[in-house]
Amino acid sequence: MIPGQFEYVRPGSLDEALRILRDREGEAKILSGGYSLLPLLKLRLAQPALLVDLQAVGGLDGIARTDDDWRIGGRATHRRILEHDGLAAEWPIIRDTAGGIGDPQVRNWGTIGGSCAHADPGSDWPAVVLALRGSFTCRSAGGERTLAARGFFLDTFQTAIDATEVLTEVRLPHAPGRTGSAYVKLERRAGDFATVGVAAVLTLDDSGRIASAGIGLTAVAETPFAATDAEAALVGVVAHDEAFGVAGGIAAGQARPTSDSHGPAEYKLAMVREITARALRLAASRAHGTA
């Protein structure tokens, strides 16, 4: 499989990259790790005129803890995120997720920004950022804006990023006390796209009731989405297996899976119920400090 022809540039700075994106709007496509994009180019399902490789743009691959939040550079690789102890200590869900993306080579090169901007309906990170109510910082030649994850994923391979923007940063809030998080992915084989992936985060109050809940689902609709109805149903409820089962059922109500090689839609809906409950259980046990 051979890609079609395109031009390639490797800007040395973000400003230069943004200038190119502005000047070649509609023709230019950002190249980050390449593990999502190159197979599509080789299958000739995508034929951009220009690839803008961000590898020489400095300052986009850091992972920083600020007083307000976590800031993960768009070019931080899955592996770099996987190996970040501070992030994992606060958000175990991050390690759950990063360790299950693709395979080691993919994790060496694939980036969180690339993955979120690519917006494959089966990708893992979007579900996590949705569950954690994180946001994306996007920069264009005209300036910077921050977009909440909820509302960012518009459709299959479509996000709220403009063609002239670069996703520079993923921001995740700090975990409040008594918070647990987990990502559970059902897959046919190690490293494959999920049959369903569920990101869950629970914050408990002193009485053991759920103060807030976040649930992100992947691979069961045109785009990853937040199971808002299930989240709402959990708030104020005692964290308990039965409630998680109910939440799974509600989450399935928001899912719109299609039948494919992972299984028929009916199976996927059942798996939304099952995996959502499992992710919530694991998140709750982590919130309790028992896992």
Partner: peptide, 28 residues
Amino acid sequence: LYEEIPYDENGNNLAGTFMDYLLPTALE
């Protein structure tokens, strides 16, 4: 457990890449 070449009703091969034709890895 993993491999099969299924066809849809129009005769399209639905396992035309290693993304869908699942060879076991060392983990399976």
